[in-house]
Simulated scan of single mutants.
Amino acid sequence: MDTERLHLRPHQPGDAGWLYRLYSNPEVARYLLDEPWTAELTARRLAERLSRTDLDGEEGALALVVEYERTPVGDVQLWFTDRARRVAEIGWVLDPAHGGRGLATEAVGAVLALAFEHAQLHRVVAMMDARNTPSARLARRVGMSQEAHLRQAWWSKGEWNDTLIFAMLAADRTG
């Protein structure tokens, strides 16, 4: 799938190197559930992503690499949380070296368009660490509404963390 500046594609076996560089970065891992990735964890996570090629396939998930100028700069994932009712969750990671140019907004916007226009989803949710203000701003920029701020709702990396929940409905896109 292509946008004005980006190419979004399924993961490939050769993606381990850039995934490791991105997800082993402590700045990236700070707000994620995993500690910075090891080479072993990278191999496991890549194997999972390789099978996530079709939201309506067996996995019920889509994992896409975000390429800018033919270089992987992040990824966006979309997966069913309730397939029967067409409800999914979305998550994204962008290399901080490529931040501030609207690339994540463009990529996430494209995946949301795919979710609602092609996959006919009813609702898409994004949940994040409340300290991750760039992701919260991104969720708002793409038109998601903040529905909740859950206080100390998630135990991660030895501490309680607040969680923000954003969502978008199909009706939000059609007016």
Rank of each mutant, 00 (worst) to 15 (best):
L46F: 08
R9S: 00
F80Y: 15
R30I: 02
G14D: 12
V142L: 02
W92G: 07
M128I: 04
L78H: 06
G91S: 10
R131K: 12
A88S: 01
S135T: 03
F116Q: 08
F80A: 04
L41T: 11
Y23H: 15
R101Y: 09
D56E: 13
V125N: 11
G14A: 10
L103K: 06
E48M: 11
T42H: 02
T42D: 03
Q152S: 12
R44T: 14
D34Q: 09
E27S: 11
H7P: 08
D95T: 02
G158M: 00
S145G: 12
R137Q: 13
E59Y: 04
H118E: 15
L121N: 05
I165A: 14
A170T: 08
G57A: 02
G143N: 01
L94T: 03
W154L: 15
F80T: 00
E67R: 04
L62S: 00
W92A: 15
R137G: 10
Q152K: 10
A115R: 00
Q12V: 13
A16I: 03
R140P: 00
D54W: 05
T42Q: 01
R131H: 13
W154H: 14
G99V: 03
L64K: 05
D162H: 09
M127A: 15
I90T: 09
L46M: 03
A107L: 06
E147R: 07
G158Y: 00
R45V: 15
H7K: 15
K157T: 03
G17C: 01
A110Y: 07
V93S: 03
H118K: 14
L46Y: 06
D172N: 06
F80D: 07
D172F: 09
H11K: 07
E117F: 09
A29I: 04
W37D: 11
G109T: 11
F116V: 06
T42A: 02
V87M: 13
W160Q: 12
A167P: 06
D2L: 14
L94H: 08
L33Y: 13
S145Y: 09
R9I: 03
A88T: 00
A61I: 01
V28S: 02
A136E: 08
A110C: 03
S156M: 12
Q12W: 11
W18V: 03
R137P: 07
V142K: 03
T38G: 04
G57C: 02
H11S: 09
A171Q: 13
D162E: 07
A110N: 09
E27Y: 00
G143E: 05
R21I: 05
S135A: 10
L64R: 07
V66R: 00
K157W: 07
A148D: 06
G158H: 06
R86Y: 00
A97H: 07
D54R: 11
N25A: 08
H122Q: 12
V76Y: 00
P36D: 07
D172L: 02
A110P: 02
P134E: 06
R151P: 08
S145N: 13
A63Y: 06
L19I: 02
I165L: 15
K157R: 14
E58S: 14
E59N: 10
R123I: 01
D2S: 15
F80P: 05
L78K: 04
V65A: 04
T105G: 10
Y31R: 01
I165G: 09
E58V: 12
A63K: 00
A16W: 05
F166I: 05
A171P: 08
R151K: 13
